[in-house]
Design a protein around this nucleic acid. Structure first.
Lengths: 296, 296
DNA sequence: CATTCCATGTAGTCTCGCTACATGATTGAT
DNA sequence: ATCAATCATGTAGCGAGACTACATGGAATG
């Protein structure tokens, strides 16, 4: 009999291209993944992986096994969800991965109530950036992923994942109370050509969107300081080092030394989506989590 | 993730109707089967088995899980066979179950050569009566089963099993060398109305056929002695206690004190068939075993 | 040619699933 | 009504199997 856990290991090797990458994607050691593949090879009696250079490559049999095995794996997951759906029982383990502001602004308020309402539900939380999140959901490492994308800035989501809109998160311009713009009702990027920005690091989605917001002005934003966390942005703004664009989701109440100003034309909005595998669409547990997120 | 081994346990309970029967069908203890079901229930979070009286019954969810799970199990088995088929490698483990005369007359001569030709093949032999054999093959407890049926005496074979004719086994009348019939070239049941028979026990297929052979005579055969094994039949015949109908397959050479006489009208022929699950039709290992049996 | 990176062996540990046995529950018989 | 029989299921203990940590062996890179 083919061992499905081992098959998952081979699938991870196939999708990630190396034993080491597969190992860290599945949370095992490279040795464990290697042994899983060997176990599979012993079970079917056919070589599945071959060394090429200092890496590995799937044999044609290995590729075929993964392709067809994925179907079996999906069928099994769908079957489990279907049984629970028929029973109408919210039960089982849901691993949820979110980006940090969603974790504190969206997940945290909802999780407690969710667990109280459904005693059979086991919820496991983890914090990742959106790109990693997509991979984790796609590979079956977690059931629900929460990602954000600014309007227009998209990234690819595999076909076998479904998307649910969870929130529209608007960002405000945060300035110090004594800043010249502090008295303004609302501002547009053309008002912000000469301000110093406190921004997230190069390569982050928020940073990309800050640039895109300036598209109509013909100039790039002037980045003065960089920080990972929006909480730190607030501190830097309060210290008079510049202004920041901070989403409302998960934002702590502003102190008296800070002012939030609406931005328009365009309104900086990021879309917050929940991802799940379509095979889990019938799972009452996943559905309960999604419903709670949408309502919260 | 649903544990497929546990699912097999539940399936056995479903098909055999009780935990104990499922246990002896799968070769586990009742406690193990019970724990397998509990494990499954924990994984899907839905009760699958409920006590009724002093036995058990599947819940509707349990029945649905078995029904759909059987599909997954079959897909996985088919996938394994298909991979090996593509590779053209005779490998893996084949469990073969046969009735006793086939074991010594058919399997034994073939097994040695089979193992020598295919080093990757692991062959496990077991001896059972045909009814048990059908169950074992159907339930996935063995890959190949060898059964016999006399013409006309049939038994049900599930749809998902395939049948391969392996041999036509003719039985002769065995009499002591000093018996009045010993000089005859051939005999017909009408010549045997008053002989004492040495027969297999009530309920065996051979016994049923002995009765059916007498259908045209209007009389039942006179059973004098009963013995499980044809080897013993020969000894009893040699001792002058009666005559016996002994198949040629697996029959030891007759001593000088015994004579084999052809029977006609009807010729007592039993059909020897090999059974295998259709999901294993592509398995080179199963195919090699079947080919060898047919050739031998 | 040394260094680095990757995969894979090896030894040890730990978890998980099975067996053996005991218990609880229900039915049928005396 | 009681006792025996039968079935399922808990519990303790044991053994196999799967993973981790570490060491080894190739292959590419500078």
């Amino acid at each position: 009999m083919i061992d499905l856990a081992a098959l998952s290991g081979l699938r991870a090797v196939a999708t990630h291209g190396s034993v080491i990458a597969a190992a860290e994607a599945t949370g095992f050691t490279p040795s464990a993944v290697s042994q899983q593949v060997k176990r599979l090879e012993r079970q079917v009696g056919v070589p599945l992986l071959e060394r090429v250079g200092r890496g590995v490559m799937l044999t044609s049999h290995g590729r075929h096994l993964v392709e067809a095995g994925e179907q079996v794996l999906a069928d099994l997951e769908r079957l489990e969800a279907e049984i629970q759906h028929r029973a109408g029982v919210v039960t089982g383990s849901v691993r949820l991965v979110a980006f940090s502001t969603a974790m504190r602004g969206l997940v945290a308020p909802v999780a407690r109530r969710l667990l109280d309402e459904h005693p059979g539900l086991r919820l496991t939380l983890d914090e990742r950036e959106p790109w990693d999140t997509v991979d984790l959901v796609a590979a079956g490492q977690c059931e629900v992923g929460i990602v954000h994308r600014w309007g227009g800035v998209t990234f690819a989501v595999p076909d076998h994942l479904a998307t649910t809109r969870v929130a529209d998160d608007v960002a405000d311009l945060i300035v110090a109370a004594d800043h010249p713009l502090a008295s303004r009702d609302k501002v547009t990027p053309r008002d912000l050509l000469d301000v110093d920005w406190i921004a997230t690091p190069e390569g982050t989605i928020c940073r990309q969107w800050l640039h895109r917001m300036y598209d109509g002005t013909g100039r790039p934003p002037r980045i003065a300081h960089v920080s990972m966390e929006f909480e730190s942005h607030l501190a830097l703004v309060a210290a008079g080092l510049g202004v920041a664009l901070v989403p409302r989701l998960g934002r702590a109440p502003l102190g008296p030394d800070l002012v939030a100003i609406d931005v328009y034309d365009p309104v900086p909005t990021r879309l917050v989506d929940a991802l799940h595998r379509r095979t889990m669409a019938d799972s009452p547990a996943v559905r309960a989590v999604l419903d709670a997120l949408r309502a919260g």
